[in-house]
Design a binder for these strands. Structure first.
Ligand SMILES: [Zn+2]
Ligand SMILES: [Zn+2]
Ligand SMILES: [Zn+2]
Ligand SMILES: [Zn+2]
Lengths: 157, 157
DNA sequence: TGATGTTATGTTATAATATAACATTTGTTT
DNA sequence: AAACAAATGTTATATTATAACATAACATCA
């Protein structure tokens, strides 16, 4: 169940991007924040706060919730990661976008999450908002279903 | 901060709809389920499970979480209410739609939630999914921002 | 430099949201 | 009535997230 692309390239690009941005915006990518970002970056699947917590903990030194949640808040605030509201989980952002509208395709079989930036959809969201005299600030689009891989290699008989 | 329409009409329509559907589908709208639905129906704002719990409890008889969550599950399953993932809260459905794509406009100022059924958006969601070979099962669209009322009567100087 | 303010982290406790597991009751079917 | 299925009651606990306050690290500049 291998992805069609080399995920290491995504990862190194994302790492490069976060480092650049932090330098540029003069915000601090501290060791804790890096560690948390690395954990989120390791997978195309969404990861949960308490899993990050687990991964960062050692028998001797247990990381505590606020440590992770604060780093998550930082990363969210600057758009380096996204929260998936319907899973209470997080993914790294592999695109470079501002506060734009993005769409998440979430496979409920394998957990893979794919981020899309579809301008047509962004536009339609704006149109709907305008029609309703609504000032759109933060669109959330989470599409649950089954990915191509899971559809074809399906374990369901 | 009055709504432009008579919300009582929405409510009685929704009540009529749920009763009809339960008869038609031969599913049971038990007293507990009705009570929970009524609580959710009382407001255009989203309501949280533990608020429903509170509202249904009396000093003598405290309702317990599973009671409410089970009723919520029933109501969700049959489409009488929707969950707002980004708020961990629930609203009654005032439309009559199947498993369609619907959009929620959520005002972060006043908490009002407005459900929209926009066919253009539904269509674009299908197109995106097809393009990505993704089998769309459950789209979640939650648009956060500021409603017309709050924009015009804004308390922000 | 070192006094001062700001940002980040450590620590403890607890709030808020949700479910597991099993017992009992109620409703339905035969 | 017996048997089964669906709904509710009950206890306990899992999961997700934040409040509040103490300490440490870093930045600014007198
Ligand atoms: Zn992104
Ligand atoms: Zn999949
Ligand atoms: Zn609806
Ligand atoms: Zn509003």
């Amino acid at each position: 169940m291998k992805n069609t692309h080399d995920h290491h390239i995504c990862q190194s690009k994302a790492l490069q991007h976060i480092n650049e941005q932090c330098r540029k915006k003069n915000i601090r990518l501290t060791p804790i924040r890096q560690q948390v970002f690395d954990e989120i970056l390791q997978s195309h699947k969404a990861i949960k706060a308490y899993d990050i917590l687990q991964n960062m903990s050692t028998p001797g030194e247990m990381v505590k919730p606020p440590t992770v949640y604060r780093a998550i808040d930082f990363l969210l605030e600057h758009g380096f990661i996204h929260k998936i509201e319907s899973l209470n989980a997080f993914i790294a952002c592999y695109h470079e976008h501002n506060k734009d509208c993005f769409q998440l395709l979430i496979c409920d079989e394998c957990g893979t999450v794919s981020e899309q930036i579809n301008n047509k959809i962004s536009h339609e969201m704006k149109l709907l908002s305008e029609k309703e005299n609504f000032t759109l600030q933060h669109p959330i689009i989470e599409l649950h279903g089954t990915c191509f891989q899971c559809n074809t290699t399906g374990t369901k008989s």
